[in-house]
Design a protein around this nucleic acid. Structure first.
Lengths: 116, 116
DNA sequence: GTCGGCATTCGACGGGCGTCGTACTATGAC
DNA sequence: GTCATAGTACGACGCCCGTCGAATGCCGAC
């Protein structure tokens, strides 16, 4: 029991073997998307789409999430009307070892984690 | 002695501290430029501009080299009329640890190194 | 049922970048 | 000197992608 109510809409995710390096780089070259990834990497819990700190419109944000998901970078699932997001850290590590972690590490200083 | 004759034209290179992650990613997201980097990573010696195995025109190739150099990824120097290229591997490792190596490793399968 | 909030879809717009050909410069061989 | 070769500079073209607003769909609360 304790079924996670609202198994409503499901989201399609690519198998890791399917995603190409080009896709991942195309996804991570955009600063907005990299900001999303950074915030996910630093978060303790999954984050809903609407609570990200980015300066684009809702529709643009949806677009970015699609790109990230289709590149295998994030996993998404619905909880009620809100959509939650997680990094597919381990899977990415298996597919492209060291890539995502290096990128997150390199992004960290940019997002103001450095001196505080 | 044994001065490498023709210290003629010199090339400007950015200091590593100057290059941004965005620059590096912009540089490495292009498949042609990544092919250049891969070939450099696999080469035992420095390679002249004209001997790369890419399918773009000479002028386009020049453009790609400029982008890579300005992103701090490669170092260039003239030898006579030919221009040689090297990866700034160690410096990049210092600036963005693990990034370039992860990328080269991920690119390797694409460039046909896998089964031979 | 109605309402409100969260996210998506669609079409349109604009800018940036990869591409090319041509003209040009610079070096080395002769 | 002439010539050939290596690479550069410049301008033009086309396409892809990030951006937005408005309209729509979906779900939960009431």
């Amino acid at each position: 029991m304790a079924r996670p109510r609202s198994s409503s809409r499901t989201v399609e995710h690519p198998a890791m073997a399917e995603v190409s390096l080009q896709q991942v780089l195309d996804a991570l070259v955009d600063p907005v998307r990299r900001a999303v990834v950074s915030q996910l990497a630093r978060a303790d819990e999954d984050i809903s789409c609407g609570t990200f700190d980015v300066s684009v419109s809702r529709s643009t944000l949806t677009h970015h999430f699609n790109v990230l998901r289709e590149a295998g970078v994030i996993r998404q699932y619905y909880v009620g009307t809100t959509k939650m997001n997680t990094l597919r850290t381990d899977e990415m590590e298996g597919r492209f070892p060291g890539l995502l972690s290096a990128l997150v590490a390199a992004s960290a200083p940019e997002t103001g984690v450095s001196a505080r």
